[in-house]
Design a protein around this nucleic acid. Structure first.
Lengths: 227, 227
DNA sequence: GCATGTGAATAGATTCACAGCG
DNA sequence: CGCTGTGAATCTATTCACATGC
């Protein structure tokens, strides 16, 4: 490896490698080269090697990486060896879809609490968990040792919910509300903005439409998401 | 400005500025400084100025930017002045949530077609649009001049659906399926991976847990998403 | 021989700091 | 005077290319 600080861009790709390796393991392959892994993860081989070198020297020269071992090392690095209880706040269409999303469980993320401000939703069961009111937030975060908060409320409530989550002790927040949310420095915040993604696509789409009239070469097309 | 090529990182932030400016306009403010806009968008002022400088010189020294004008310029740059018909493929929980997502319409993205491979879903109406079978995909893309495809299928079907979309002429694709999808160079592809976002949070969360035992300073906490 | 691991080179993004202008 | 616009400096990430070691 060399250093103990893993670049942010590398961290953002570790889940990609993790998933690719799990698929590889399922197909019974025991060893992969950086090139194999790169193809399955949709990146290039040099990047894979550089990224993995930040974790340690887990490969064998002339051979490649042992799949099971690498999965284990990446899991450990990502903290996937433990269970992370998740709270979802806001059970509109998106919140419900997230509560039912298969693929969280598989990675150790367990939906442990559901909160909605709407009286009418209280008491309903979604994906096997009972929806509770906003007033229950602080209590359930403590009782169920919630580690990650997901905000799926309308934009107008997002900051308030974030403040409640932080006050309750949640240090990792994923925000789906289409608004800027600010948190203290010691809290991790990531956001997923659906409309924003479409707008970025729209930019390149309209560029393409423009330049198709001219003698231009094809427009550049970027990959996306993550940090 | 100077150049006509807008950096990818800048493009990814334009929707953020766009939204912040719309909110600013609603509160009746006519002019913003780069500092105002930076605060509302959750970035720093230097970045705002550099980003906007790529679009042109739309500010006034000593004063700031005229909100309405800047909204218009960014809208034009992002291609939001036109209507983009969208197709959603896969109407599980997530696909349905996306179909119902308010906030697409507002930016010119109109859900114009819904497709699901499941016979049982065919004919159902979701968010005012009738669900059709996979066999209808090519026809409706042509008939309704679909510009953007959203893949919300299980991972196993995502590549197949992407191929169908590309064959039908769709050049912009947003992939929600947790798998790598490849498309020709002249097609834009972005991805949103829900489990991946949680795993990135998990990385920083477990680091924090580790170092809280030691005398370490607080862990660094990155902002996120986008390209 | 072959694929890793890594310094060096390059490219890209962010931040600084200030000249320029309303 | 205040705030934009932008070169220069810095920081981060990607890619290259090859020595290293199984």
């Amino acid at each position: 490896m060399s250093d103990r600080r893993i670049p942010e861009a590398t961290v953002a790709r570790l889940p990609l490698y993790h998933r690719a390796l799990l698929e590889t393991a399922e197909s019974g392959v025991g060893t992969v080269s950086s090139q194999d892994l790169a193809t399955r993860a949709g990146v290039n081989a040099a990047k894979v090697r550089k990224d993995l070198s930040h974790l340690g020297s887990y490969g064998t020269r002339g051979v490649g990486y042992e799949v099971d071992h690498l999965v284990h090392e990446i899991s450990r690095e990502l903290g996937l060896t433990q269970d992370w209880p998740v709270i979802i706040v806001g059970l509109g269409n998106l919140g419900q879809a997230l509560a039912n999303y298969r693929g969280f469980d598989a990675r150790g993320f367990r939906v442990a609490a559901l909160i909605d401000a709407d009286e009418k939703k209280r008491g309903r069961r979604v994906a096997g968990t009972t929806v509770e009111g906003l007033d229950a937030l602080e209590r359930v975060v403590a009782e169920r040792e919630i580690a990650v908060g997901i905000i799926a409320t309308p934009a107008g409530s997002a900051q308030e919910v974030a403040d409640l989550l932080v006050a309750a002790g949640v240090r990792s927040i994923l925000n789906f509300a289409p608004t800027v949310v600010t948190v203290p420095d010691d809290v991790s915040l990531r956001k997923v903005d659906l409309a924003m993604e479409l707008q970025i696509l729209s930019f390149y789409q309209s560029r393409r439409a423009d330049s198709s009239d001219t003698a231009d070469r094809d427009a550049p097309v970027p990959e996306a998401t993550g940090a």
